[in-house]
Design a protein around this nucleic acid. Sequence first.
DNA 1: CGTTTAGTTGAACCTTATCAAGCCCTGTGG
DNA 2: CCACAGGGCTTGATAAGGTTCAACTAAACG
Lengths: 223, 223
Amino acid sequence: MIRDSSLCGAMQDNELHALSSIARRKTFPTGQVVAWSGDPNSVCANVVAGAVKVTASTPDGREQIVGLLYPGDFVGHPFAEDATLTVTAVGETDLCLFPRGPFERTLGEHRTMERRLLQQTMESLGGAQQRILSLGRKNAAERIASFLLEVLDRTRPDHEDGPAEIDLPISRGEMADYLGLTIETVSRQLTRLRKDGVIAMAKGDRCCTVLSRERLELIADPD
Amino acid sequence: MIRDSSLCGAMQDNELHALSSIARRKTFPTGQVVAWSGDPNSVCANVVAGAVKVTASTPDGREQIVGLLYPGDFVGHPFAEDATLTVTAVGETDLCLFPRGPFERTLGEHRTMERRLLQQTMESLGGAQQRILSLGRKNAAERIASFLLEVLDRTRPDHEDGPAEIDLPISRGEMADYLGLTIETVSRQLTRLRKDGVIAMAKGDRCCTVLSRERLELIADPD
DNA sequence: CGTTTAGTTGAACCTTATCAAGCCCTGTGG
DNA sequence: CCACAGGGCTTGATAAGGTTCAACTAAACG
């Protein structure tokens, strides 16, 4: 179902076959860890359904979500000996797992796959660079607005204007870990957006209606 | 001179030849812009000597350095139509420039090169993720200490302990833009490190002696 | 039901930004 | 040769944004 947006997108049938012969489908319940930081780096994967968070943390336990991956996204770090990041399912999640060794070998045998992975990695890098800008230079309101727009673009790629309902994939605490803020600040900023009529959202809910995409964009990227 | 650490590292002579036939060497004076954000994405490059900064900025002009690249590092974003980032020489810098089109073609013709670029891009992504952690969860002191260690590791890869002299590649203002702080905070944190005897450094100087790497590490990653 | 968990809200505090002044070095022009 | 302007850096005072701590609500769950 997610073929064309994922690694498999550009591939021939024989290549797909090579991949699927090493792949293993698995469902992870909410909160289950797929791979631990510090463990040997043994798997790569494609997200099939649900989502995963990729987290880094300081030795004293502060946590930061460095990536949020959705269906079609590639997870993992080929060629690295050890995992430096923890991968966790957020919400019930289906992954297509590839043991790293065989995956790297398959990569070597199928050019289109390697090319596609290179392009995906370049895109991830671009995304990471945007997040560096957010975390380094944006205030709380701007970060929250940017995040809502990110989720909106992910789930409604064709949306242009007018009200749109989005379902936040993560909790307030996870939003805080993603945006480099605290739970309290996230909560306050959301109520502020609600009071200002930019979004509509029941208290404590994960469901959120963007009333004015335009205003949200203005907050995310002021001019 | 920087062959083995750069893209060219894993290549055969015929591949090197292919690359060098499209390459153009150029020296950029301090502050000169190599590529502008928003312009068509026309070049990739390898840093030969000196260093470049890669910056992103908000529409209202706040600036963030998203990457700092040294000799051997690859600069650019193959496959992207437009540049979203600005690349600027910091200090007198030699680059080996590749027009993007021919570079992508060459990439398609030389597997080892593509493989190597994939690995480099993965490493860049890992670095970016570490910086997301820093910007999201570390305070000013920790960021400064992390940065000094980064520079130390770059310039003295074999250094383990004891005093070591390092030359900061960038100004205070650029450190601020790199670390998501202000000039004033950077300055204050450096004098603090100086007063605490962690580093020795003449006021306003770019040269800095790390007196205790151990203490610096303790500050960068508290436990 | 009582307990737990996620989220909201308020008050006090703290880190960092902002504003302002001054220093030092360099380069320039009288 | 000196006065002066400018840039890079430091330092101080003040302000603000976000964190921390704490209380509270509401839904979920045994």
